[in-house]
C-alpha cells in the first residue's frame, strides 16, 4: 500500500538547517495497523505529514497504492488525499462554525456527492462512531473524545484506503483514549490501513506493528501482539 525509500526532509531556519528525516525506508502493507513512535523531534509527525501529502519530502521516493507521489501537482495531491487518505489530528481540526454532521459531510462535498447523499452517509458514519445523537452539535458543544470521533467519522466518510492519525489520543484522558483506540481497531478490522503517530507505549501496543524513530532514522521496526482496546473499555 505504502512504499518509501531514502526519504529525506530538512527545515531551514535562518542560517541553520535542521535535518528531520535522514533516509527513511519503510513499507506498509494493506490492512496493517502501524504505530510510529519516537520522542519529540524524532521526525514521526513529519513522516506522517509527508505520507499524508500535507508536506513534501526533499528527496526519496514515495509510492502510494502503486502511484509515485512526488510527480503529483497540488491538484492531484488534493484528489489523492480525498480519495485514498483520511486524517485524524491531535487538535481535531474541525471547522468550528459547522455542526458535527456538516464537518463529516465536507469531504464528500469535494467528491461532488449530492447533498442528500452526503447527509445520509455522514449521519451513518457518525452513528458508527457512536455520535448519531450529536449530529447537530457544533464542535464547541462536544467533549475532546467526541470531537475526535467526529474527526474519525470525517476521515472515514470518503472511504479511504489509509487512515493517518497524528497523536489521536494526545488530547484525551486514558479512558477516552482506549475508547477511541477501540474504534480505530474496529476500523482496521474492516481492512483499512492505519498509521498512528504516538509517544504513548500502551497506545502503540494496540497496533500490530511498531516503528521506532530516533533523530530522523528508523531504529526499530517490529511486529507486536496486538492488545485489544475493548478489554479496557467496559
Amino acid at each position: 500500500m505504502i512504499k518509501i525509500k531514502e526519504l529525506h526532509k530538512s527545515y531551514t531556519m535562518g542560517q541553520n538547517t535542521l535535518y528531520v528525516l535522514k533516509g527513511i525506508d519503510f513499507d506498509v502493507r494493506e490492512g496493517e495497523m502501524v504505530a510510529i513512535m519516537g520522542s519529540s523531534g524524532s521526525g514521526k509527525s513529519t513522516l506522517l505529514n509527508i505520507l499524508g501529502m500535507l508536506d513534501t519530502a526533499d528527496s526519496g521516493t514515495y509510492i502510494l497504492d502503486s502511484n509515485p507521489i512526488k510527480e503529483l501537482d497540488e491538484t492531484k495531491a488534493a484528489i489523492y488525499r480525498n480519495k485514498f487518505l483520511g486524517f485524524v489530528f491531535q487538535s481535531f481540526n474541525l471547522i468550528s462554525y459547522k455542526t458535527a454532521l456538516e464537518n463529516v459531510m465536507l469531504p464528500l462535498y469535494y467528491q461532488k456527492v449530492n447533498r442528500k447523499e452526503r447527509q445520509a452517509r455522514a449521519q451513518n458514519f457518525l452513528e458508527q462512531v457512536g455520535l448519531g445523537p450529536w449530529a447537530s452539535h457544533h464542535p464547541n458543544e462536544l467533549s475532546g473524545g467526541q470531537k475526535q470521533r467526529v474527526a474519525i467519522a470525517r476521515a472515514l466518510v470518503s472511504e479511504p484506503k489509509v487512515l493517518l492519525a497524528d497523536e489521536p489520543t494526545g488530547a484525551l484522558d486514558s479512558k477516552t483514549s482506549y475508547e477511541l483506540m477501540d474504534v480505530l481497531q474496529k476500523i482496521n478490522d474492516t481492512g483499512i490501513t492505519l498509521l498512528i503517530v504516538t509517544h504513548e507505549e500502551d497506545i502503540a501496543k494496540m497496533c500490530k506493528r511498531i516503528v521506532h524513530l530516533r533523530d530522523g532514522v528508523i531504529v526499530e521496526d517490529k511486529k507486536v501482539k496486538q492488545v485489544r482496546a475493548s478489554s479496557y473499555v467496559e
Binding site: 481540526n93 469535494y110 467528491q111
Partner: peptide, 16 residues
C-alpha cells in the same frame, strides 16, 4: 488560513 488548511487536507483542490 487554518480552515483552508483543513479543507485542503480533506480534499479541496487549489482551484476550489
Amino acid at each position: 488560513t487554518k480552515e483552508l488548511g483543513i479543507r485542503k487536507a480533506i480534499g479541496a483542490t487549489p482551484k476550489s
